[in-house]
């Protein structure tokens, strides 16, 4: 691998750009394939480049057969994102676990005394209102949104915004009773059963979690299940 290719690849990743690295497994020649351009010394037919862009979209590395030999397409997409609403005790554990699992983590809490104080040092923290923050950050199909505040003033706007996004996971902390009341409020706000069924509540897999770290484990496990098993989960 040439230094220019590696440096460009690292720069693309740092800038959260999607890029595929195509390598001819026989010659070692390489080509960087962006959604809108290419760079490198490996010549590929237009249909192979199209297939590489499809692999990028599907987020799946693959090997393509070409007249010049096998070409490995390594997909480099920006990390999936985890939005945590509520800079509470559980969020401290969940942010760490999300980061370990490869997510780009953002903590959202407009209450200054919660988000400040160095409890979330090194994480992306915003003091915007949850709906404003999520409208700006635009959760996509590779995003998870978890609300942890217990406060309808903060959780409800976050959930409303999340439900209007294609986020693959939406979870809300709260007991069955709290959750039923929350669904009722959202129903009155105009959300139908299909939309409300997207919310995992009470949040997390039922593993008897008690401590903040254990609850974070159950949430991270459910996010993982949803991401890896999707509709089968």
């Amino acid at each position: 691998m040439k230094r220019e290719i590696l440096d460009e690849l690292l720069a693309a990743r740092a800038a959260a750009r999607s890029v595929a690295l195509a390598t001819n497994l026989g010659t070692g020649q390489q080509l960087l394939i962006y959604p809108d351009g290419t760079k490198g010394d490996l010549n590929l037919d237009a249909d192979v480049i199209t297939a590489a862009r499809e692999a990028l979209k599907a987020d799946r590395s693959t090997t393509l057969k070409t007249p010049d030999g096998d070409v490995f397409i390594q997909v480099h997409n920006p990390p999936p994102r985890l939005f945590i609403v509520g800079a509470v005790h559980i969020a401290q554990a969940l942010a760490r676990m999300g980061q370990l699992a490869g997510y780009g983590v953002t903590i959202i809490d407009p209450r200054r005394s919660f988000a400040g104080g160095g409890r979330f040092e090194g994480y992306d923290v915003t003091g915007e209102w949850p709906d404003e923050a999520l409208e700006r950050l635009k959760p996509d199909i590779r995003s998870a949104v978890v609300t942890l505040t217990h406060d309808p003033k903060l959780d409800d706007p976050a959930l409303s915004t999340a439900l209007r996004s294609p986020a693959f996971y939406i979870g809300a902390l709260g007991s069955k009773k709290t959750h039923a009341a929350r669904l009722e409020r959202l129903r009155r706000a105009g959300f139908g059963d299909d939309a409300l069924a997207r919310i995992h509540g009470p949040v997390g897999l039922d593993i008897g979690a008690i401590s903040p770290a254990e609850i974070a484990i159950s949430i991270m496990a459910q996010i993982t299940q949803k991401r890896r098993q999707g509709a089968n989960a």
Binding site: M1, L6, L10, R13, T63, F72, L100, G102
Partner: peptide, 29 residues
């Protein structure tokens, strides 16, 4: 933090320090 970024980042850092470096990638399973 991301797995792949870390690995390639480390590879680039080693190379910048003048060391010989190779990268191995799983291409099929």
């Amino acid at each position: 933090m991301n797995d792949v970024e870390d690995i390639l980042g480390q590879a680039a850092a080693w190379r910048r320090a003048g060391r010989g470096v190779a990268v191995a990638t799983v291409v099929s399973t």
